[in-house]
Write a protein that binds this DNA or RNA. Structure first.
Lengths: 153, 153
DNA sequence: GAGATCTTGAATGGTTTCGTCGAGTATCTA
DNA sequence: TAGATACTCGACGAAACCATTCAAGATCTC
């Protein structure tokens, strides 16, 4: 039940932009270098995020991207839905990207109930979390000494 | 963040087998017909479930499949992990199918914390739910009148 | 022994994913 | 105004994956 690489890159790029949130823009090359994301692929992803109004861009010599809203207004659920579609593990319990499944009788599908539970749990987390949370965490982690083992939540 | 069709078919087949749990076996054709799953594909899936010891089989004229354990001992998390791998949305927070990601510094990855939260939520549900829960739900839904609207959890 | 059904390993075609490319457009600076 | 830089758009390609199928063999019951 994987988040796509595209989705992951989108979130990492937004986190990076969140770290530098302000009037200035960051160049794609800079984000790509820092986050080790292929530049041309990142171009495509940022363009899509611009379409979703998560970022805004400026062309030209001093061009680049920046967040289109404050980090605490950009919910992770919205980003993931925009970039890759439903959060729900099966289409028929998706509230925003409903897709009929092929089971014989959807109104009698036992699996649906459990999958709705999973969908609600995922949405419950991602609809609360924002880019600000990621930024805060990134700053925390940046400031902790090297060599720390796996952190715990 | 989709469950694959394979994973879904596996769970539906197990639910069906759970409905008829007992010493007798069900033929693949019967499960396929009832659940509208392509027979040859289902053969492959059941074989994999047999490898994971979720079902057992008997060959020959009276051949077929049945659950290898009581329905309330077959956890959905175990099934999904067997059939399609990690529950976690990103490999680097998977506890059972760890995969390094490509971010620059995993120990400083802000996204990991949120994705671990999501992983824990998904696992929290699926490690509690069993095939017995699906069977119980299936029986409930079967016994309710036609025409009922979307059920609620 | 025939027929029915599982078993194994491989194959196929379509789709998706990840990533790239070329050319165009816009903007800024010298 | 020209050149440089960076965004924008639409398309492309390889690889991987997914959903599904196939052929032949093994097993079991009647």
């Amino acid at each position: 039940m994987k988040l796509s690489v595209r989705g992951e890159y989108a979130l990492r790029a937004l986190t990076h932009l969140g770290l530098y949130y302000g009037p200035e823009v960051l160049r794609i090359q800079a984000i790509a270098d820092e986050q080790r994301i292929p530049k041309r692929f990142l171009e495509q992803i940022l363009n899509e995020l611009r379409n979703g109004r998560f970022v805004e861009s400026r062309r030209g010599v001093a061009g680049g991207y920046r967040l289109a809203a404050p980090p605490d207004k950009i919910f992770l659920a919205a980003v993931i839905r925009h970039v890759e579609g439903a959060l729900a593990p099966v289409g028929c319990v998706s509230e925003k990207f409903y897709e009929k499944c092929n089971c014989p009788d959807e109104s009698r599908c036992a699996l649906r109930a459990v999958m709705k539970e999973v969908r609600d749990a995922i949405a419950g987390i991602l609809e609360k979390r924002t880019v600000a949370d990621l930024v805060k965490k990134a700053v925390e982690l940046k400031n902790q000494p090297m060599g720390a083992d796996d952190f715990v939540i």
